[in-house]
Design a protein around this nucleic acid. Sequence first.
DNA 1: CTTTTTGCAAAACCTTTGCACAACC
DNA 2: GGTTGTGCAAAGGTTTTGCAAAAAG
Lengths: 141, 141
Amino acid sequence: MAVKAMKYSRQRAAILSFLKTRKDHPTAEIVYSGLKEEFPNISLGTVYRNLNQLVEAGMIAKLQFGDLGIDHFDYDTASHQHFVCSECSAVIDLPMENVSQINEQAAKDFDGIITGHKLYFCGICRQCLDKGIPLKGTCEK
Amino acid sequence: MAVKAMKYSRQRAAILSFLKTRKDHPTAEIVYSGLKEEFPNISLGTVYRNLNQLVEAGMIAKLQFGDLGIDHFDYDTASHQHFVCSECSAVIDLPMENVSQINEQAAKDFDGIITGHKLYFCGICRQCLDKGIPLKGTCEK
DNA sequence: CTTTTTGCAAAACCTTTGCACAACC
DNA sequence: GGTTGTGCAAAGGTTTTGCAAAAAG
């Protein structure tokens, strides 16, 4: 089934350009708040619908972190890694060389087809370190 | 704050031994169904509470896959990898050498402390391949 | 007897959806 | 004019929680 046509909508355009200005991988809720000034009546449902459409169109990426249980969205669809702070839940880009060779490594002893992987890193971000936050015991692996 | 005392409970013991018999990483719902025969009145809340307690005690592991949105539980707490079938959602163990060196690799250019990572693989499992399921476009990375 | 656990039901949480109306082309 | 998008509110699915009664130590 082909992707259905996408008509222009001011809301969707605004969502996309809002995302473009942010490097902090906002949630739907944050996008919603950010658009409230321009669209006082916009609804959270509309934000979710548009975010999902943009994801399906490959124009943005949906980031899912089990630890957080909330979806985050990224204007940058190029392959890169993410870090999630165990203290403040900030999502930060991680400059890092490609790790796609782990797919082949995983496929070596597996009976089935491996098409991809999901990966993210956890720990404490600089901001929280500066506040003297001690290391929590989560996300060790 | 120390971990509070755990009194024995028949339900918790049954949950743990149920999990011990399964290699398919069941969900809370499946554990619940599996115990219904022995405990006709057990409640899902009790299952969740006990699973979380066992996780905190380090006796089992909670597996979270963004794609699925449902927690799975694993009796095997030793570090190993998992594969999630994009077709049938089966969760399968992946025999694979250690990849913990990627933490150091990620830490190289990052200002903060990396304590761990979350990783899983996606694709199509043997069972679905045998049914002639075509590859879907999800989870490529 | 004190503390922890249970079952139940309600709530919390994030996300999706049905519908009537508006916007787009 | 036909189709897609919006706003609203309601529902969905998973997990957590408050509470009185039961079990454990």
